[in-house]
Design a protein around this nucleic acid. Structure first.
Length: 475
DNA sequence: TCTGGGGTCCTAGGACCC
DNA sequence: TCTGGGGTCCTAGGACCC
């Protein structure tokens, strides 16, 4: 493994109290006053507190209720994300002018690789050069954002640059001279190391480790024993300021999800299904917009006591189809509802529901229906699938895993996979909505195609209209 | 009436294959 | 026939980050 860069060429930039600062910039009446941006509902938490609010002990991730009791006269705002995205775009643009190698970590944070900068003043990466450059960059950020300030750290690694940007907040700059990293780090708490949160800090504390200096005394084997192999090896190296991770400009998305916490607990399974199906539509829309599709669908359920459980299923092919996602989501919810422990737990109260899709491919599946006739428009647009009119048709090609509903004498099921002349069907039965899987020859006359008209509940005017069975025929 | 929402990464166990 | 190993995929849960 390479050790560390010899020059301080990694810059970390962090916008100060970002959401709150945008609000104060845009609303002069809020300037100089405590501002809290975050969830304003009964179960909201603070996303950002302005420095005026921090004086009263208001912090990120604190419940809004707690923040209100600490600072009742603050302005509590739910946030204007389009404004934050706009400001973030301006900042990232300014950073890319400085160097093509910019790695955004979130709307308000990024790494910049100064070694990749074409700027002639950075021909040598001396402490003096990078300091002057960083000051100009900070001024430029304030200029393009119409007044926002930022804190910047520059060092030989991502880890040290991030530590440095935290040392002189707000509106500060710290450059760590190469070679001085370890003495800077030693007196600090182990919690400065990224990845050391409450649980890891607690384990280390019980082993007598509280500072980075303490951590340096522990062997790699011991650390692996304490916190696992990946984490242990990471801690061993970071304790010594050994970090050669590159600045990476583009990172691929691994999952897309939507979740929501409700002000009061849910106990009605039909309502849960309705909400999950709506979230399925949102997830699918975001996948489609990003040109992504994924194979694994996960539902997440947080119970009234905050215990969290999830169920997932992996499809044979990636999808971005809302009807497909919704169908899997329904069967996963049914699986939880049928569980001897999870079923009663669900009915006892659910505070959060979520839907996610992972196992992403950066291509969209071919439209399997391009050569099919349009679906029969008379084939029912209301009611339950049980009410569908009769005229199923057999089909020999173009089965859509996850999308098509079929039935045979065993009951109703949906296509789970197809290929080599065989269609695999996962049946829904009264006893087991995610029921048995059977295979059929594609031309099996016992196998009839159904189109299910109600993937979005009809009593929801806000729900997007979807084609029956997810078919994408024109017209 | 404590505890958001969007993510990433890791672990551990089981299935299955060679 | 028995034993063992490695590799990959999948699932569930947990820790962490901004």
């Amino acid at each position: 493994m390479r050790d560390v860069r010899r020059e301080a060429s990694v810059l970390h930039l962090d916008l100060d109290a970002f959401f709150a600062a945008v609000e104060q910039r845009d609303k002069p009446s809020l300037r100089g006053r405590p501002v809290v941006v975050g969830g304003t509902g009964g179960r909201g938490v603070v996303a950002t507190a302005s420095y005026e609010a921090r004086v009263y002990g208001v912090r990120s991730a604190m419940s809004t209720r707690e923040a209100r009791s600490r600072c009742p006269h603050a302005a509590f705002l739910s946030g204007r994300f389009s404004a934050y995205r706009e400001a973030s775009r301006a900042v990232m643009g300014a950073l890319r002018e400085a160097s093509p190698l910019v790695e955004p970590l979130s709307l308000d944070e990024a790494f910049v690789d100064l070694a990749a900068s074409p700027d002639p003043t950075l021909a040598d990466l001396s402490v003096e050069s990078v300091t002057a450059f960083a000051e100009r960059l900070r001024a430029r950020v304030t200029e393009v954002t119409d007044g926002l300030t930022c804190s910047v750290g520059v060092a030989t690694s991502k880890f040290m640059a991030k530590v440095a940007s935290d040392l002189d907040k707000p509106d500060g700059l710290v450059v760590v001279a190469p070679g001085t990293e370890r003495e800077l780090l030693r007196p600090m708490s182990v919690t400065v190391i990224p990845g050391v949160g409450p649980a890891t800090a607690d384990r280390l504390r019980r082993a007598g480790v509280q500072t980075v200096a303490d951590l340096e005394q522990v062997s790699q084997e011991e650390l692996v024993r304490l916190v696992g192999s990946a984490h242990g090896a990471g801690l061993f190296h970071l304790a010594r300021a050994h970090d050669d991770r590159p600045v990476v400009a583009v990172r691929e998305t691994k999952s897309v999800s939507v979740e929501g916490t409700y002000d009061s607990d849910l106990s009605d399974l039909r309502l849960m299904e309705h909400l999950l199906v709506r979230q399925s539509g949102e997830v699918a829309a975001r996948l489609a917009k990003a040109g992504l599709s994924g194979r694994t669908v996960t539902i997440k359920v947080r119970l009234h006591d905050f215990t969290t459980t999830s169920r997932s299923a992996t499809l044979p092919e990636p999808t971005d189809n809302p009807a497909v996602v919704a169908r899997v989501v329904r069967s996963l919810l049914a699986e939880l509802a049928a569980g001897v422990e999870t079923g009663p737990a669900l009915r006892a109260g659910v505070r959060l529901l979520g839907v996610g899709v992972s196992g992403l491919a950066d291509w969209v599946q071919d439209d399997l229906f391009a050569d099919l006739e349009a679906p029969d428009e008379s084939a029912g647009t209301d009611g339950e699938a049980d009410d569908l009119p009769e005229p199923p048709r057999a089909r020999s090609t173009g089965w859509a895993p996850g999308a098509d509903v079929v039935h045979d004498e065993h009951g109703r099921g949906w296509v789970w996979g197809s290929g080599r002349g065989v269609v695999t069907v996962r049946f829904e039965t009264r006893e087991s909505p995610a029921g048995p899987v059977r295979s059929f020859p594609v031309d099996d006359p016992a196998l009839h195609l159904w189109q299910r008209p109600e993937d979005e509940p009809t009593d929801d005017p806000g729900a997007p209209a979807t084609r029956a069975g997810g078919l994408s025929a024109p017209g």
